[in-house]
Design a protein around this nucleic acid. Structure first.
Lengths: 222, 222
DNA sequence: AATTAAATTTAAGTATGCTTAAAAATATAA
DNA sequence: TTATATTTTTAAGCATACTTAAATTTAATT
């Protein structure tokens, strides 16, 4: 299997995030901002990865992962989420600590070690955020049919299924507003212009920015 | 604290090994062979690390770590041995597997995570090989007064205290010849010319190469 | 539609960490 | 001690992964 450099892995991860996420695209500038590099560096990298057949690249267009590129993304993502689960369950690190450490460890984790960690954890399907862990053959167990909070319909009640953010602020915010996995909420109203969503959670009304709500996943309460 | 690159960390580790070991010096060629790079690359790196005050470098002389360089070496060594201990005790990896994985993980392990691992393990003083784990402030707990097997005196009986090798062959050899931590042995005779040592272990005579015996540590049986 | 702004690309340059090939210094052996 | 071999160093070059600055293309605004 193709072994990518750390820089390449991070670049491909960013594209993957852009392809999946609703609050981010895969234009070079967006990727550059995500990685903290210049636009020129992103274009440069795009050309190189295109030659390696990891992405499809047409000038001035969005970057798109090839099947090979997607495989790299899912491999790193699997290691990232396995480490997050492991660091949380075994070493008791907090939600934002596990992200920070997994962000490093994922790049120097052999397939062998990833399997050992997975076995030790009982081959979990999701990480502590509720995010699905890709399998070793690159499948994503999407059994929960979660949607982002921004997709929730006014009047409907949901349970929070995933909290997908990575920074301390996000988790502090969630915690102090009782936004936890399993908690029920009712979507009140969408404000298109201001890109806000109003929800009711534990008898409290909350106005959330749409960007934030794309890292909060919900599913219909059964 | 100065953050070294992976290449720099490995280079400094090799020098540290040469400074400590009895079977290896710190000449550029030796370091190059250890790392699998050319002599030219080793000289090149030596000049660069000298500019960063991590090593003392005089042309055609052996490479020597500065206090700063030694700090880098001990920091990486601490992380290496903490990972080895953790992977062995928690994930049950074999002796040569833990080395291989720790060799990677050590480079992307934050000080924060190292402390968490250490705490989890009850702040152990030695790793599964019996090698001392440097403390977070760069001290090496040398409480056991071990010596290498090559230093053992004929007629004396010792207990094996450390098995410091890294490759599978070494551990397979040790295992099949009952060379385990805690096992008693009696040094029989040194053969200077052929660089061999004869020992008796569990009523069996064994002839060992001196290079091998520098990774086997012993101490006087009490 | 024309102008302006923003994003993207190209070009040139830098640091790291290697390589090969040739020159210089050191070590070994006859 | 002199010739030979080995090691070390220098020199030139390459790939990766960035940078800044300028040119080009696309997008937004009037």
């Amino acid at each position: 299997m193709y072994k990518a450099s750390i820089a390449t892995e991070n670049f491909i991860k960013a594209i993957y995030k852009g392809e999946q996420g609703n609050s981010m695209d895969t234009k070079p500038g967006t990727i550059a901002k995500e990685l903290g590099i210049t636009n020129a560096a992103a274009t440069d990298m795009a050309r190189k990865l295109a030659m390696k057949k990891l992405i499809d690249y047409e000038k001035y267009k969005e970057l798109k992962l090839t099947p090979d590129g997607t495989k790299v993304a899912l491999d790193v993502l699997r290691k990232h989420r396995l480490w997050e689960t492991f660091l949380h369950q075994v070493l008791g690190l907090t939600m934002h600590e596990i992200h920070r450490e997994a962000e490093l460890l994922e790049h120097l984790t052999s397939d062998f070690l990833a399997e050992k960690i997975s076995d030790f954890l009982g081959n979990p399907e999701t990480d502590p955020h509720g995010d699905p862990i890709p399998t070793d053959d690159g499948e994503i167990p999407e059994t929960d049919h979660s949607i982002t909070l921004s997709m929730g319909e006014p009047g409907n009640t949901y349970k929070i299924s995933r909290l997908s953010g990575s920074d301390k602020e996000f988790f502090d915010f969630c915690h102090s507003n009782k936004l936890e996995i399993g908690t029920s909420l009712t979507v009140q109203k969408h404000y298109i212009k201001t890109r806000m969503i109003e929800i009711e959670i534990q008898h409290t009304k909350l106005l959330l920015n749409i960007d934030l709500t794309n890292t909060i996943y919900i599913k219909k309460a059964d």
